[in-house]
Design a binder for these strands. Structure first.
Lengths: 123, 123
DNA sequence: CAATTCCGACTACGGACGTAATCGATTCGA
DNA sequence: TCGAATCGATTACGTCCGTAGTCGGAATTG
């Protein structure tokens, strides 16, 4: 079974749950209020779709549900990153970095950080 | 006007045109035959959607069209990369690199290449 | 207890997407 | 010349997605 893809809107919900969990639908909606102009119903729909996709679980608490992520952020981020690298750079990461570099995506700290990483990897 | 997003299937068509252009729909379909199991009609639909989105142009040649990319691959790749970095890494590229690193996405040559890039950027 | 509120479940609906089939016009081959 | 092949245009259709509205039941409040 191919793992169900998570849409952009669903991802926004996951980010909230990754920061703190478990949470009720109302709490998730609150947390998103600044970023997205969604009604509570919309958030509930997204949560239930995520539950169907197996990305979150829930436990009953009175007559509400408390939602918890099942999918780990690490895994999601890794999958998405790999997808992009595969699709656009033939699976090789160096060209991605070259591209980001050309777009001035790196601050001085970034450069230092990357150097450190490279040093570690070579060791 | 927000630039129209290009879907996965459409992107496969763009890759063909980025390699060689202009091309007829039939030629694009041929070039894709190995990679995707699409009928000619499907390819034509994708081309016409890409034309509507302003990603390709076409010129009549007899009763066929010759398609040419308008959107540059550089731009597309840059946009998609930026989207991912923004969505998953708060707009900072270093964490992306850290992530790719952890997944053993780097060969020895990659590391050398990246070191070279970093060197250049620091200079 | 009755009216209101709140919850999850189900339903909705337009647009994008993947994947074509069909149609009307044209051209090519026999 | 006349049917077959081919072309772009139009239409199709199921699914996912964004974004809710509604419904039936349970809890709360007065």
């Amino acid at each position: 079974m191919a793992p169900e893809r998570i849409s952009d809107a669903e991802h926004a919900v996951m980010e909230v749950l990754w920061q703190r969990s478990p949470m009720t639908a109302a709490d998730v909606a609150d947390a998103l209020a600044d970023a997205r102009d969604w009604t509570l119903q919309t958030v509930k729909t997204l949560l239930s779709r995520l539950a169907n996709k197996g990305a979150v679980s829930y436990q009953q608490d009175g007559r509400r549900y408390l939602y918890t992520p099942i999918l780990a952020r690490e895994d999601y981020v890794g999958d998405e990153s790999r997808r992009l690298v595969d699709r656009l750079f033939g699976g090789r990461a160096a060209p991605l970095i070259a591209h980001l570099a050309e777009q001035q995506k790196f601050t001085a700290e970034d450069l230092a950080e990357i150097e450190r990483l490279i040093g570690e990897l070579k060791a």
